[in-house]
């Protein structure tokens, strides 16, 4: 048999941000969380605490979650000051209670950023991310119009790098981790994913200009190269993509100012 987890049950104190609605003031409130199993996930711990609160007639803590396996990007807690908590390369839902010790006080807040207003307690509004995507985060390809898939070979290196960028789960931890609340990592991941592929060349200039301009208009801050974003990112998206996007943006601005030919169409990317 596999080693039994013999760690004992333990208890912590939660200091949780409670806020009844977007326009109401919020505050931290403390609740005990008792008899925790180290193999519980952080969100399972919140489930248990919530059932106890409800039994006491206290409204449960609202928190966002869905897949609980680090892929949907819904969960969004800042735990002890760190977006998604203490682990590296994981989302809130992949944080396990074994990362904490008996007697700890754990501070839990929503991701904080001007462009992500609080809806209730730990739930935030990230509609701004969708708006950036709607501005240009796509390759126009109507159903029915696509050529044979293998007609366009793509070097494995380019495809792999595009996939590295494409893994972004749209959680917003990068924004919450940045002292300027910049969305550069998120936007650069999408711009790079599509810009690295030959299919993405036709709209490359248009895409980067539209996405970056929309990002600015939505109240995200600017990037000052501190790279807290990559460190907090559950998919460890590299900040190299920001530099890549900056180059793309400059070239695209230049070309659009002079209305010269669009970006090269040979694929691969700069």
């Amino acid at each position: 048999m596999v080693a039994v987890n013999t760690q004992k049950l333990f208890s912590v104190t939660l200091r949780v941000w409670r806020q009844a609605g977007p326009a109401q003031p919020g505050k931290f409130v403390e609740y005990p969380a008792k008899d925790l199993n180290p193999n519980m996930s952080f969100l399972e711990m919140l489930d248990v605490v919530n059932d106890e609160l409800a039994a006491q007639g206290i409204e449960p803590i609202a928190f966002a979650h869905d897949c609980r396996e680090g892929i949907c990007g819904t969960c969004s807690c800042t735990i002890n000051g760190k977006p998604h908590g203490p682990g590296k390369g994981v989302a809130t839902c992949q944080t396990y209670m074994r990362s904490f010790s008996d007697g700890d006080t754990i501070v839990v807040e929503p991701f904080r950023a001007r462009a992500f207003p609080v809806i209730k307690d730990l739930v935030i509004d990230r509609a701004a991310f969708d708006k950036i995507q709607q501005a240009g985060g796509f390759i126009t390809a109507r159903a029915g119009s696509a050529p044979e898939a293998n007609a366009l070979p793509i070097a494995k290196g380019d495809a792999d790098l595009a996939m590295d960028a494409a893994q972004c789960i749209g959680c917003g931890a990068c924004v919450a981790a940045c002292k300027n609340a910049s969305a550069m990592l998120f936007v650069s991941a999408k711009v790079s994913h599509l810009g690295l592929l030959p299919q993405g060349q036709a709209e490359r200039d248009r895409r980067v200009l539209a996405m970056v301009n929309t990002m600015d208009a939505l109240g995200f801050g600017s990037c000052t190269n501190q790279y807290e974003c990559s460190a907090a990112c559950p998919k460890l998206i590299s900040h190299d993509f920001i530099a890549r996007m900056n180059r793309d943006y400059v070239k695209a601005s230049f070309r659009s100012a002079f209305k010269a030919a669009p970006a090269n169409t040979s694929g691969g990317g700069a």
């Binding site: 159903a143 494995k156 592929l197």
Partner: peptide
């Protein structure tokens, strides 16, 4: 075909296929 045209980064072989 449709997904590739949209930029879905499917796994590829070294030859690019």
């Amino acid at each position: 075909d449709q997904c590739v045209a949209q930029g879905v980064p499917f796994a590829r072989e070294y030859g690019g296929l």
